[in-house]
Amino acid sequence: MLYLVEHFYSIQGEGRYLGTPSLFFRFGGCNMKCEGFGCREIAEDGAEVLGCDTVYAVNKEHFSHAWIEIDSAQQLLNIFDLYDLPTGVDVVLTGGEPLIYANDEIFVEFLEKMVANNHRITFETNGTIAVDFEKYPVYKKCVFALSVKLENSAEPLSKRVRGGVINSIATNAKDAFFKFSIDEDSINMALDDEIEQITEHAPQTDVYCMPLGGNKADVEKNTLALIEYCKNKGYNFSDRLHIRIWDENKGV
């Protein structure tokens, strides 16, 4: 079953297309928990859930009220009519982890119809789920933001880094770039080695580094040290513009 958690029209807050007006589709479900990020969300049942800043799109047990079952591609395409959008507006597919639905027939049909309507599609993915580019060539027309998780996610290395998947996506996609979430405390020699071990699977792929944080205060706390790190390493600094502007508010 395909689940959509939310949709909203805003600006892209991260990565290569920062500031670009984009229609976001946030899908439910993920193959990771990333509890090391330390973001806490209070569910309607009062439970405090730990994970990433979109834990409500990861944890169905406590946030099922927000998960909408999708039974047709048209159900998703109808969402375009809810907004006053420019022609060919950018579309961002995020989560959770949207590629858990990579082989879903409804999902693939949705992609094909968006590409036919000249939308640029960007996947925000952790880069661990293989995409069958030959069976589903529509993926070759998409952009992939490879948000490969670092040690600060508290996920094991064997789970969060899959070199073959990273290489396949970077090689076959229309475009791809790395996007890492980094906190001030993680900036050390070990971080250098960790990023280099990941990027060696796609050495020609640009690197963007973002300050870790699920709220404005945490993002600002981690920003200055990260800017200096990017200057020293030659990486691109990416703000998290949506958090800096709207803080913890969702769907904006």
Rank of each mutant, 00 (worst) to 15 (best):
G13W: 06
A130M: 15
E109I: 00
L99R: 02
V108F: 05
N232P: 00
I100Y: 01
C34W: 12
E48K: 05
S158F: 14
G38S: 07
N31H: 15
F110T: 07
R162Y: 02
F144V: 03
E124H: 12
C34L: 05
E69A: 15
F107Q: 04
T128F: 11
F37I: 05
I187A: 08
A116H: 11
D132M: 11
A57T: 15
A173L: 09
N31R: 10
C209A: 14
G38V: 04
I121M: 11
F25L: 04
L224R: 15
G46A: 10
C39W: 03
T20W: 12
Y3V: 06
L23A: 12
F107S: 02
I70V: 13
W246A: 10
N152I: 14
N152C: 15
Q75M: 11
D90R: 14
R244W: 00
L2W: 04
V143W: 10
H119A: 04
V207G: 02
L157F: 14
K149L: 07
N249M: 07
L82D: 11
T87S: 15
G164N: 03
K231F: 12
S238W: 01
V92C: 10
V92Q: 06
A47Q: 09
G15W: 09
F27I: 12
P211I: 08
I245K: 14
A154D: 01
G127I: 01
H7G: 00
A190D: 02
N236P: 00
G96S: 08
E6I: 10
V161G: 00
M1F: 13
T125H: 04
N152Y: 02
N167V: 00
D104T: 07
G127F: 08
G29V: 09
Y83R: 08
G213F: 02
W246M: 11
N117L: 13
W67K: 03
F8P: 11
E196F: 03
L93G: 05
I227C: 12
S72L: 13
S168C: 04
F123G: 08
V165W: 08
I245Y: 06
G19K: 14
R160K: 09
R240T: 01
A47H: 06
